[in-house]
Amino acid sequence: MAGAAPGGGASRSEVYRGSGPRLLLPAWIFIGVFLLLPVILMAVYSFLTKEFRGGVIWEFTFAAYDQFFLNRGLFGDEPPTIEWTYLGIFWRSIWQAGLATFFCLLIGFPTAWYVATRPVSTRSVWLFLITIPYWVNLLIRTVSMKFLLRDTGPLNEFLMWTGVIAEPLSLINTNFAVQVGLFYSYLPFMVLPIYAAVERYDFALSEAAADLYCDSWTTLRLVILPAVKPGIVAGCILVFVPSLGAFLAPDLLGGAKTFMIGSLIEEQFKGAAGNWPFGAAAAMILLTVVMGVLLIHARAQMREDG
């Protein structure tokens, strides 16, 4: 907000004094219209009664949440037990997204480190090269990955040509293919924030650590990682969150054999029965989980920073 800047032109702060709320208005409108309103709408819909084949009836009910958490059997007349179907789908999506985040970090950190330690003149070239594939639409990139991985694709053809394998490897329609797709889609979201953090890192600290007989592993663990942690955390969030809702990779590379959170929600709006409140409820639960994780992290961060 427009507090008086210490030592800096009193007249300027004079001009802006009290106008803070007004200057924030565009941001508030933006957040209100594009974030709060849709979320509130979604929350309201999740408590409405479903109309057959899509749509809602304006009667309040917990039916959508009941369906998500309680299993009453195929015919709905058994005593309720915990419903694992949707929790399982959520867990699978979280696991996939977590794995993709892990691999992105594994490759992204050294990559970012390498780029950030190049001379200033060549850094921008490296960054440029990393972003080039992302000029192409995500769908096109995912489909090309499908071409690469299929039984008659270049990868299998090459391996068979070299004689490493006799039969094509079944790569397409597997979790491996989904992982490759997610990794490829979101890697730069990991590289760029870490790069920004490493670039600001003061390498004198590494030298100091070496002077104090720190081996390189201990230096990495005790000096470098804490210093670039904000970049790593930002990268992990930027990869994890979109991976969680990803549906292109699971559909095109995984063969759509199992629902992911994204496709489960889509099915509620496009499927045969159309259950909008349930789709809204699933989206609300996902939102709550993600918000919860981020809040816990923010809390921990604040405690750490004192």
Partner: peptide, 16 residues
């Protein structure tokens, strides 16, 4: 409707 929800349950069950 009461029948369609059963088919939907079978479908979700198949893809869970």
């Amino acid at each position: 409707e009461e029948v369609q929800v059963l088919y939907d349950a079978i479908w979700t069950n198949l893809k869970k």
